[in-house]
Design a protein around this nucleic acid. Structure first.
Lengths: 370, 370
DNA sequence: CTGAAAGCGCTAACAG
DNA sequence: CTGTTAGCGCTTTCAG
């Protein structure tokens, strides 16, 4: 019905247009500002004024006619043309290593929500931890003239640093530092997280703590390790070497199995990411090691899913929603001190895996307690 | 170094340009095709020819000069201008209910990968199951002239159906049907998945199976329920009513707890989504019900994470990567029969939660066995 | 093989 | 308050 009406309207009007060459119904807003102006009997500028509420005022009657025409034709401004003219689109680009990873999935979701709240759309790219892929997205996204790019760096290479520095687009680094980068940076208090973890484990009387971390010593996991070791040292507890594995649960599980079979018999494990922790839990189960009795497990990230692990995972949580919101804020507010680095606080969420007793009157309702 | 070189180059050349009005170094590719043409001493058309490899041929020498100029200036074509001119951008839009949900997270990741493989970037929008949010993204995305939109519908409302039908942009529906929509559709074989689940549970000798499903009877979970019930009926097993809960683990847990406390003592539960299954597992744990001994649990979706649940989750898997690839295929190949619906096969992945014995020489390496 | 020029749809001075 | 017009940067037809 509405469709027919519009089609008819257009058909009747097109012949009069300036450039009618039987154009096919291709993608892209068929109805343009010109059509609206013609129907409303005004100039195209006026249409623009009412659509954007400026920069010039428009008489009430005129505005009404334009609005009516817009409504009648189903006019929807073309974002590309607008962006080309305005030198910018209400768009944000987000680059992450792997959107399927629970932590990044949460981050993608939160950033999108924050962007939407501010009227922006979101582009997402997965680098799979490949520097070249990251460079690709940085380049490709920036060509669309987005308001800014939010990047969770995958690997701190010279190539990335170079591209990052000479990109003609605002960039905010999230979650992970890149040496030599001087733009806005939003990270969690990873060092403190590791520190809290160590303190807590020591407080539980654990004597042989182990840290299971990522494959290489890049932030943020490296900072978590360092905080953990430092707190251990400060407590006069034995400082152990770190165990490393990839970010997949299966890899963490394998590494843990080896550690359990090894000579240093850990009685506590701090997993620097929650994915690692799930691997640890699986390994303990497979090896018949009881958690938390024989092995206390403490993770970091603070995902809601941890509540449903067996046993429920104790973790050092980052407020992902706030984290993302801050990043989007930085991205959209070109504040003065653009070298500003924001450090987000972390919070210990004790559940059962570290040895803490179950909360008294717990109803297990929280999925959003992070 | 490279930066300085460019800047100098530009500064020296700008004064000669046609429209130099002290423009600030704003976002958007500063260097344009005009600069390249000037430096290379050719027309702008030729630059376009070499950049796009057509539509007219270019002499080797000329092409070389242009390439050199591009390199020297660090020219990067503006995607908006290109898109405006070409009536389309190498962009795909993906609308999902919730990118933080493990299943959709996987889907977002897979779709992005598939899009990237074909040279496209991806926009992502979260509807939070709100029809109006979905309409918003459909509208906003399409204004950017993307190649197509891939939509995982959130709720089948008249409003959505209307917007969907009159959108001036190619749309592919993924994972969930929408009545009255006649464009390309890519879904999993949900009915069959439910059927397989029932057969398997009956095969394990379970007599009191229960189906835990989503909050309302929309596809795909409704199809899974139907397949489940049908197979049960076919097997002469008691047909039960379905238990419903939201898609969050906590909600599923609550519902399961209630069921366990109820009169119909289920000895098997088919969870129509893997999130539900995790809630079931947690409930069983909390209630002291042994899985699979007292209660067999079989899920559907087939996420790698299920392998790490306690006990490892048996599930009916959808090949998400293939699923996404198919959707992107449909989105990018405007095949003739655009009403085509592709149904993706499913596969039972028996693990321990349903009562199947652990595989003989299992090394627990698979994280990607789906 | 190369260049001039007409758009793509929208914004924003700059006159009326 | 409203209309004219010159771009935004790129593609492509149509002459040379």
């Amino acid at each position: 019905m509405t469709i027919r009406t519009q089609a008819t309207e257009l058909a009747a009007r097109l012949p009069a247009g300036p450039t009618v060459r039987e154009r096919e119904p291709v993608a892209g807003g068929r109805v343009t500002r010109d059509d609206v102006a013609r129907l409303a009997g005004t100039s195209t500028a006026v249409v623009s004024y009412v659509v954007n509420g400026g920069p010039r005022p428009v008489a009430g009657a005129t505005r009404a006619r334009v609005l009516a025409a817009i409504e009648q034709l189903g006019y929807r401004p073309n974002a590309l043309a607008r962006g080309l003219s305005m030198r910018g689109v209400m768009l944000l680009g987000l680059v992450v290593p792997d959107a399927a990873n629970p932590f990044f999935a949460r981050l993608v979701h939160a950033v999108e929500r924050a962007a939407a709240r501010r009227g922006h759309l979101l582009l997402v790219g997965n680098t799979a931890f490949s520097p070249s892929a990251e460079e690709h997205y940085l380049d490709a996204f920036s060509r669309l003239s987005p308001a800014a790019l939010i990047v969770v760096n995958s690997a701190d290479t010279p190539g990335i640093r170079h591209v990052l520095s000479m990109l003609d687009c605002r960039v905010v680094l999230l979650h992970k530092r890149v040496i030599g980068f001087h733009g806005p940076l939003v990270i969690g208090d990873d060092y403190r997280g590791g520190w809290l973890a160590a303190e807590h484990l020591v407080g539980h009387g654990r004597k042989r703590p182990l840290c299971l971390s990522g494959p290489d010593r890049e932030s943020p996991v490296a900072d978590r390790e360092r905080g953990f070791s430092a707190a251990l040292r400060a407590a006069g507890a034995p400082v152990t070497s770190v165990l490393r594995s990839g970010f997949l649960r299966a890899e963490a599980m394998r590494a843990t199995l080896a550690a359990i079979a090894g000579s240093y018999q850990p009685d506590a494990i701090f997993a620097t990411t929650e994915e690692h922790a799930h691997g640890v839990l699986a390994a303990a189960r497979a090896a018949g090691v009881r958690v938390p009795d024989d092995l206390a497990v403490l993770a970091m990230d603070g995902l809601p899913e941890g509540e449903f692990a067996a046993p429920p995972l104790s973790t050092v949580a980052v407020d992902i929603a706030g984290f993302a919101d801050m990043a989007v804020n930085e991205a959209l507010n070109p504040g003065p001190g653009d070298t500003r680095v924001t450090v987000f606080g972390v919070r210990l969420v004790p559940r059962l895996s570290c040895g803490c007793a179950p909360a008294p009157a717990r109803t297990s309702t929280s999925t959003t307690d992070v």
